[in-house]
């Protein structure tokens, strides 16, 4: 009889660590007709291949967005051909063109009306930063001042191929999400704001001029003199 303490019994239903399955083993199983997956993979796979955009055109880029949904470029190959006129049925807000200060409250309101999970693509120079019209007194210098943007597509306007590339990048981003933890998408995190404050078209500028929760002015770093 030894007086050494007995190790605590490990819970049978929860092994200490799951044996990792390699991609080669999974491919081998798939070859035998066995599909092995996790809830997370199933969730992100379904999410990423049925991204329905909102039928919402702002300016020049909207024409290229329509062109991307037509026969030559055929956005249907990526599961996004269903352009929904109502924000309640849409997953993706493509901000396709210049957002003016008069239009910005409506864009934020549309974003608030979309159900989670939802994504935003800033298409074109104007939606990213104001683009060629940045000097204008009525032009918002980037929609990311009010709503979180997932993918930025540069160009004036971006070609339809660029929009498709942006969509594929978004799908890759969605596939990288986990259901729990810090990599979880925005709507599964407790700190998610849910509603984004809608700015008002004030006398001089939008009030507030940006949403501090999603955007802050970049700090200027001056190079030290040598």
């Amino acid at each position: 009889m030894s007086d050494a303490p007995t190790p605590p019994p490990s819970p049978a239903h929860q092994p200490a660590s799951l044996p990792a399955i390699t991609d080669a083993e999974r491919a081998e199983l798939r070859r035998h007709g066995i599909l092995l997956t996790s809830l997370q993979e199933l969730y992100t796979w379904g999410n990423s291949h049925s991204v329905w955009p909102l039928n919402f055109g702002l300016a020049c880029c909207a024409i290229e967005m329509i062109a991307a949904s037509m026969a030559k470029f055929d956005i249907a190959r990526f599961g996004s051909e269903v352009f929904r006129p109502s924000p309640r049925q849409a997953d993706l807000l493509i901000v396709s063109g210049t957002v003016t200060k008069k239009m910005a409250p409506q864009v934020v309101r549309l974003w608030n009306q979309m159900p989670e999970p939802k994504y935003c693509i800033a298409m074109g120079a104007c939606a990213i930063s104001g683009g060629p019209f940045k000097q204008g007194y009525n032009v918002l210098k980037g929609i990311d001042r009010f709503i979180p943007v997932d993918i930025y597509i540069p160009g004036c306007p971006p070609r339809p191929e660029a929009l498709l590339h942006g969509l594929v990048q978004l799908q890759e981003k969605i596939k990288g999400f986990t259901i729990k933890g810090p990599d979880a998408p925005r709507h599964l995190q407790k700190a998610d704001a849910g509603e984004y404050p809608v700015p008002e078209f004030g006398a001089r500028d939008l009030e507030p001029p940006h949403n501090p929760a999603v955007w802050s002015a970049p700090t200027l770093v001056r190079a030290e003199k040598s």
């Binding site: 702002l58 300016a59 063109g97 003016t100 008069k102 239009m103 019209f133 000097q135 007194y137």
Partner: peptide, 14 residues
Amino acid sequence: FGYLHRNHEKLGET
């Protein structure tokens, strides 16, 4: 009107 007023004429003068 005015939801896409991008200051075209003012920019043309600058």
